[in-house]
């Protein structure tokens, strides 16, 4: 059960870190210091998006398989709702991580 709690919190925590990083990168690019160019920003954001997204996807698959096993084995029934929670948090987090990357994907510069 502890593992399922971790599976629930991890994806959305990854979202939080990802959001913070994307916000910081955009602020660094678009601030007066202009620490990086939009091209470098785009490359960096792609990089920092792919890995958390894959991680969350892995958790999503793990949670889904766990749910499958619980359906088969009634002894695990008390865990069923937490497995559903882990699965749904992973789904929502995955969408949210992808959405974080949208601005960098669609805008070619800070002003558009």
């Amino acid at each position: 059960m502890t593992r399922l709690v971790i599976w629930t919190v991890c994806p959305i925590l990854l979202w939080a870190v990802h959001f913070g990083v994307v916000f910081a990168l955009i602020s660094a690019t678009c601030g007066p210091r202009a620490l990086m160019t939009p091209e470098i920003l785009r490359a960096t954001v792609s990089l920092v998006t792919v890995f958390p997204a894959l991680g969350v996807l892995a958790l999503l698959v793990a949670a889904a398989r766990r749910r499958g096993r619980i359906v088969a084995d009634t002894a695990l029934a008390p865990e069923a709702s937490l497995a559903a929670t882990a699965y749904w948090t992973a789904t929502i987090s995955l969408l949210a991580i992808l959405l974080n990357a949208v601005p960098v994907a669609v805008l070619s510069s800070c002003s558009g």
Partner: peptide
């Protein structure tokens, strides 16, 4: 909701870029 927000995001971003074009 996902469909709705993607549509809204798309429309808003296009409008925003058009409005703020220098």
């Amino acid at each position: 909701p996902l469909g709705a927000i993607l549509l809204i995001l798309l429309g808003s971003t296009m409008a925003l870029l058009a409005m703020t074009r220098a």
